[in-house]
Structures are given as C-alpha cells and as structure tokens.
Design a protein around this nucleic acid. Structure first.
Lengths: 332, 332
DNA sequence: TACTGTCGTGCAACCGGTTACACGTCAAGA
DNA sequence: TCTTGACGTGTAACCGGTTGCACGACAGTA
C-alpha cells in the first residue's frame, strides 16, 4: 500500500488517523490509492499499537429476560455510532460466571457496561478502579452508574390507585436481592402512608409468570383491591390467576406492572410503570466512552475522577387493568 | 515476564500455546512465575501475529424482537465455551445497515452468524465466499445455514384442528419477504388440502400485536373457525381483538401461534408451534467454528468446501387456545 | 570414538500499524 | 543574504506476541 502510493507507511498511517498533519493533496492521493486497492487499516494492528481496542462489552444476567434486550439494543446502537463494537456477555444469573466473564472481557475491551450485577460490592469496586466500568441498575458508591428510578413511577401508581378510591393495596415483591425491588417496595409503602391508605407486601417472588399466578390467592386473601407488581411478568401472572378464577380485571382487582415490557401486547392492556430502560443503555455507553477518554488522558497527567450517578425517571402509563374498586369491598 | 522467569519470550509464548514442545519442568516454572506476576498473554498481540481473533459476531435484525434473544443466548454460550467472544450486531431491520455492519465486523471477527438476513442472495453469497459465514433462517444455496423447519409443526397444527372438527381455517400471514412465512403458508395450504378442509390466507402483516388485532375482523368475516398465525405476537393480537369484541377463546375461534415466545405467559395460554430456536443458535456457532477451522487448514492446502444445511424440526404445543368449533358454525 | 538424530531453547524476523525524532524545504523576518 | 521556524514526510523503534531456523546437549548407533 505505502509503496504503491509512493509514500512511507508513516504517511499512510497518518492519512487515516491524523490527516490534519499532512498536506491535503497527499491525503487525497493516498485515499484514492487505498480505495483502488481496497485497503483498510488493519484493526487489530491499530489496537495493538494504540492500546485502544474499539470495543466495549455489555454484560447482562440473561439476554432472554425481556427487560434487557432494549438496554442492549440502545447500548449497541450508541457504541456503533461512536465507532465501537459491542461484545455481549450473558452471566446466566451466576455470579461466578459473571466474575469469569469480567476477567476475560477485561483484556478484550476498552470498558464494560455491567447490567444488574450480582457481584459483591467490593469486587465490582475493585474492577472499576482499574478499568472503565459503568453499572446499570446497581447503586455502588464510587462507581459510575445509571439507575432506573422507578420510585417516581411507583409513587404515581399509588396516587393513581388512591384517586380511584382504593383503600388497601398490595405490593407483590420481586427478588429480595434486587436493588430495583427494594426501591419499589419502599416507594409503595412510603407513598401509601403519605396518602393515608393501607399497603401490604407479598413475599419475595421470582420474576416469572407462574410466581404471579401463584401469588393471586394470597393477594385476594389480603383484602387488597389493587396490586402493584414488581414487574410485568408477575403482573401478567396475576392476570392469569384472576382469569382462572373467573374474576374480572379491573373490577375485582386493579393490577399495575412495572417496566412496560410487552404490557401493551396483551389483553387487557396492562397499566404499568414505564422506565426508560433503553435510555439507560444509551446513557451508560455514553458515560463509559467518557471514562475511556478520561483514562487515556489520565495517563498524561491529570486524574480527574468523577463519580457520576445518573437516575432516570419513570412514569405511570395508565391502561386497562386499573379502575375503581367495584365489587370487592369485602372489608367494609 | 520472560526475564523474570529466566527464559526467552519464545519460551513464554510456547508455554501458553504449544506446551508440548517444552520440557515439563520449564512449563511448570514459567506458569508459576506468570501466576505470581499476574501475567496473561496479551490477547490483541496474539490476534495480530496469528491472525485469529477469537471472536465471532452474531447479527440480527432486531434484538428487541423476542424471537432473537434465545438464539443469541445460545450462540454466545456455545462460543464462550469454545473460547470465543461474541460481538453483537443489530441491523435495525435495515439492509444497508446490515451490509455496513458486515463490512465492519469482517475485519474484527473470525466469522459471522447472520440471522434472518435481509440482504440479497448474491451479496450474502459473495461475503460467504471469502469469510466464514453461517446463516440462520435464510436458505441460500452454497452458503452454510441452519433453518428452523416450522413446516412440521404447522402440519401438526392443521391435523390438530382437523381432528377437533374444524372445517375452515385461515392462515394469518407475516411479512412476504420472510422465508419462514412462505414456508408456513405453504404448509398450511398443503396439509389442509391433504386433510380435506378449507384453508384461506389473510394478507401480509407485520409481526406485531396491533397487526393481529386489526386482522381479527377479517378473520371473523372469512367464516374460519380457527386461525394459525405467523407468529405469537400476531396471535396475541388476535386474542386481544377477540376479547375486545367479547368473543370467547377457543369457543368462538381457535388460535395457534408460532415460535413459542411468551406464549405460556399469557392467559389463556397460547397453543403454539415450538421451534427449537435456541438450538439453532448453538448449531450455527458450531458450524461456524468448523468453518473457521477449515479455513485455517485450507491455507495449508486442501479446500474441502462443504455445504451444510441443517433443518431443525418443530412441533405443536397444544395449550388452551384451541378447541372444537362450538358456537360459530355460521356457515352451515 | 565419531556420527547422527532428537529434544529443548534462543535468535530474530514478522504480524501491521503508531509515533518520537530527525531531516529537508520553503517563506518570512532581520 | 543569512537565520529561523513552521510544515510535511521519512526513519526506525515499538506494541506483545508467534514461529522458522539454528544451535548446543545429549543419547543411541556403528
């Protein structure tokens, strides 16, 4: 390539990386020759000499969980726009595999977006100290992170139910270890107290359809006239449980889901709390690329560590599974 | 590293790549030193000198479409097991972006799994000629591919309906350009003819909930007592459309979906055709790695081009949305 | 004892770029 | 006319491994 164009390899290199250093005619000429020869800078060689891989990784507990694809999609899209490729890691919900994956990806990427990590805080913190890392939905001090603040949406949900006339609602919990679950539960309890209505909590459930279906009996027994579920999957399960009993939605029970996953694709359309999860993916990548930049500069002197913590708001999307409590005022 | 262990860099290299060439004591010693120093072979440097990147890519039209995550998940898992990382590409259903992505990934991966490609045959074929490539759900002669043969499941579905007593069924089409759709439609028509029942087809629909809902009127007007939908999303839409009209499933209409995506997570649980799509992901990666190997050997002489074409079977999963035609025998 | 082959390891070139430094050219300023 | 500096480009070392070839040691064979 260099010889064909009659220049040195250094010049060819500069044409593609620092063209402003060269005379414009040189740049044009080399590019022409390159186009004819189909020459493209060798990515791996670039990576080796610059130390920048042009690759990030997105690590999630389970790709098949419908919560994650939008995040991944947005992350990949944004990374691609910035010239980065995206490696995908699936930890299979297993912390050991997650740690393993992190170690492997460490040397193959410029940085990692770690979604809903199950790893202990100090492990994550240690990793973040020497490699660019951004968390999604995990709140660890000292580590860059973007959190989906479902609390706002949950408060709206409670308000919505209170305004419809519900006096007793229940929160159907997700996994205890989940940061989101803790946040949502607290928000339900606090906002209910603020509105002067009763709120109870139904034990921990795995975020699965069957768990929701199984929870139905307990919900009905509690006397609540409305349920806020940890996520849409559980909410759908509750709908199934109600249908099996021949009970009507929302007359016999108002149901609110969370995450707005598929919620509009079922009947009746599920009232849910939409958190802008795809925005979380985009934002996380944005922050990560920022860190990657900073680290490159930090080598040159300044070490301007910041601790960004972005919280994305959420809001209630009222659809057809909520209404005034009609038949089941059994308590009174 | 080399100096600390008192050996040459060549020896260090051999310890990690061709240990059988060395005295065992040397291997042990170097590995010990490496462990102490936390030394790990530099992945990019290895890639540069060997030409093997240890990375494959999986390219899909839309990660958020629930059909793909299981494929991706299986592909990633299998690749990881073989020591390969997985790059993810989302073409956003756009052929131009797909072509662009392919060009970019070409130099960053050892091979590509291309799922449900929208590219013209010759473009794909050209790409496959000089780089390892495996297609999923696209049938192009001369290119390695794994196909989900939904025809078998569709035939079972038709049989199932015929046995329940349905005399007139309808197929609710997906996108015309989809290979799967063509396959499914033909299977419905052929098997219906074989069973001596009437089958009609409802025009092309995008694989979306609303499309299914909108199709409901047409379905009812057709006089069919059962519908087989291109996919579960459309099927769910039909369920919504029926519910909106106050009609009962399966009494007023039997509905069968396809792909077994989320089908069990709704109420009533959807009768559907399960194709082992995650197996498709695994198999595609297996074939791809095979091609990668072969190519490495081919350089050394033999060029043993094969043309593998794997078809995975499918089968009907009867659940609650199918039953005998009860009320709507309006035709008679 | 001399000869040959095997084994284990080192030397150095190479993968394909990047970049610090040096050099030559040319125009502006003294 | 000589100096000075900006500009454009080449030289060569370097990124961190891999690998063909060579070499020394040692064992087996004649």
């Amino acid at each position: 390539m260099a010889s064909t164009a009659g220049v040195s390899t250094a010049t060819v290199s500069r044409v593609f990386s620092k063209p402003h250093l060269l005379r414009e005619s040189t740049v044009v000429h080399v590019k022409e020759v390159a186009a004819q020869l189909g020459y493209v800078p060798h990515h791996t060689a670039q990576a080796l000499s610059t130390g920048r891989l042009g690759t990030i990784a997105v690590v999630v507990p389970d790709i098949a969980n419908p919560f994650f694809p939008p995040v991944i999609r947005a992350a990949q899209g944004h990374a691609y726009g910035a010239g980065f490729s995206t490696l995908l890691g699936d930890t299979d919900e297993d912390p050991a595999k997650e740690a393993d994956l992190l170690a492997t990806l460490e040397q193959r990427t410029d940085g990692i977006v770690l979604v809903s990590s199950r790893l202990p805080e100090d492990v994550v913190r240690r990793h973040a100290r020497h490699r660019p890392l951004v968390l999604v939905n995990r709140d660890i001090t000292g580590v860059a992170r973007v959190l989906v603040d479902s609390a706002a949406g949950v408060r709206q949900a409670v308000d919505h139910l209170a305004e419809l006339g519900h006096q007793h609602i229940t929160y159907v919990s997700g996994p205890d270890s989940s940061w989101s679950n803790q946040q949502r539960r607290s928000a339900v309890l606090e906002q209910s107290a603020a509105r002067g209505i009763t709120a109870t909590v139904q034990g921990a459930h795995r975020p699965e359809h069957d768990a929701g279906r199984a929870a139905t009996a307990e919900i009905l027994a509690s006397g609540a006239t409305a349920a806020i579920a940890f996520d849409d999957t559980i909410a759908q399960g509750i709908l199934s449980g109600m249908a099996e009993r021949g009970l009507a939605i929302p007359d016999d029970l108002s149901v609110i889901g969370c995450d707005d996953i598929l919620a509009v694709n079922t009947y009746p359309p599920l009232t849910t709390i939409r958190s802008r999860i795809s925005e979380a993916g985009r934002l996380a990548v944005e922050m990560l690329l920022q860190l990657v930049e900073n680290r490159a500069e930090a080598d040159a002197g300044e070490d301007d560590r910041m601790e960004p913590r972005h919280a994305l708001t959420s809001s209630l999307i009222p659809r057809a599974t909520t209404g005034p409590p009609i038949r089941r005022s059994r308590k009174g």
